[in-house]
Design a protein around this nucleic acid. Sequence first.
RNA 1: GUACCCGUAGCUCAGCUGGAUAGAGCGUUGGCUUGCGGAGCCAAAGGCCGCAGGUUCAAAUCCUGCCGGGUACACCA
Length: 634
Amino acid sequence: MIDHDGIDPVDEIELVDTELGMKVPALPEADIAVDLHELEQLAPYNRYLLPSLQQDLEAVVSSAGPNLPLLPAKSEIDADYAVPAHRLLAADPEAFNHLLESISEADDEQGCFEVVAEGPFINIKIKRDVIAPWVIEEVLAEGDNYGKNGADLGRTVVLDVSSPNIAKQMHLGHLRSTVIGEAMTRILRANGVNAIRDNHLGDWGTQFGMLGHAFELWGDEIPELKNPSTQVTGLLKLYVKINQEVLAEKESSADGESPLEDAGRAWFTRLEEGDPAAKRLWQWTYNLSRAEFEEVYQRLGVEFEYTLGESLYSHINSEVFRAFVDRGLAAEDDKGRLKLVPSDEKMHALTIRKSDGSSLYGTRDLACLASRLHWFDPNEVIYAVGAEQTDYFKQVFDGFSQFAGDETPELTHLAFGPIELPDGKMSTRKGRVVFLSEVLDEAHSQALDRVTSNMERRGIEIDDEHIDQVAWDIAVGAIIYYDLKQPAGRKIVFDWDEALNFQGNSGPFLQYTNARINALLEKAGDAEVEAVTSSTDASYFKEDTSGVVGDLTMLMAEFPVVVRRAGTTHNPTLVAEHLYKLAHNFNSFYRDYPILSPDTSEDDRRSRLLLTAAASQVLKNGLKLLNIPAPDRI
RNA sequence: GUACCCGUAGCUCAGCUGGAUAGAGCGUUGGCUUGCGGAGCCAAAGGCCGCAGGUUCAAAUCCUGCCGGGUACACCA
């Protein structure tokens, strides 16, 4: 038998009263302190763009005609606002001209906009030559803080992220919640939010009962369980085995019942009722899994303020049952199950207590919400969980909203599609899974080849340890970016070649651009870069802003706006896209504007170094927000 | 069956609070290193924006219907 008798499970936890009329667990100590940052002193996100003029313009436009919209222009680096005045122009050209004139006279104190009529459109354009030095100056002055803003200061958001199940290895499916949750956290913080990451571990429930039962039946037959380094694999084997047998039982029985499954449920009930032997096995498994998850998180550079598994909330099952029944929000059905009473009749009722008295996923989520409300008093709780659970979250949110009334925080299901394999869905039972560690290892090995040959070609000697670290940075960057570059909603068909493609719109492309800039600045020398960038008014900047230089500075100007929008729309992809554009534009600039060439004049050299330093800063800040490593060389 | 999501370039997808020539990456074809990292840059080819109606000065975008693909509807999570 496996030795887990020495494990000492935590039994007693302290409960505290809440204003919701139910007890919740006392808040466990945080793993890392919640990062409460001070952003008051930062500039607003829209400091350069037209919103400062917006009210004024709206008044002018609406006085000219009832149905004239003032639109933010589609291409933001070209025009800031456009007024499509087709009708006005057709009906009354004189009025059109009058409007054009009035808009031109709008109060633009800083003189950074111009108004042009293009066909029936009146465009209000930013003057790039005026703005560009301001932008560069701001970027360099704010440094690592550029892009951050205090727009959401005072707001608290709890993010329910990652949430792998214990007793199984993390696979590709867990990647998205982890990666999206991490980027979202960093973006929210850049907006001033007090963001709390809680890894809602799947460490409880009937599935665990199945495993426990399987362990007792066949634990001795699984060789992997005897070797500490393969024990999680052994547990997974057990899980697969029992599920297969349950399936077989169901298929061969007339009524679709499975005694084995019933036994699994019973095992879970035993665990939930506090059976010491069951708890010891559970704790052993829990500890094993936590250690294994920790390795993956370290590689990905991800941390959580809290890792509070579902098991914590099982201590207040009876509180949930009682509170919901007392308030008439849950009722027992004819089979002895306790079900929520939905506010909308069309909604299915969610079961929160089985007929044997044990809890379900939803019970624990309700308990968890009540706890989070008490602990953190959040404005919002964001669940980064797969889209297949959309209806489930509607049920939980509905139930909790009825229960907590006005106290209910904003509840957001940040849904993402599944990661599928080219030959279909991942299925643990069918052995069609790609484990996260496999993907990382493969990415690392490919990156290592590339980095090694790169360094050889460039004649750079670095020790193996450093090269290995860089290869990890690239591997992790590639995988994080692959996940982040398309919005969460859709399913991703995992394609090895594309995920590990280091060209085009990819993580390594961004890292490459960063490394290249870094090499350039290094070659120029600290002294010169320092001299150029320390000037407080960007006075060295004297490029023509009509082309790629203008595009580049406008992309830098928009960066804080994008960070803001990514925060409000919960969409980290916006930052990823923006960085791609920025890097791409920089590469065009790099190609067309020699900097360190002997033929470049001193003035041009300084001016271009200044722009390069600013672009580098924005790129770095953006990569940081997405949790993509930015090594100096790759 | 009911509800929700998705049909845009050969492939994977942006764009969808209606506005100007529908954009990226991959792939294909061609070009660019005496000048800083070619993991780069430039260009070309490639589209009845699923189909049919409707609203509008204006529809990939809004509405209705249809067709095709997916997901959810457990005493799982």
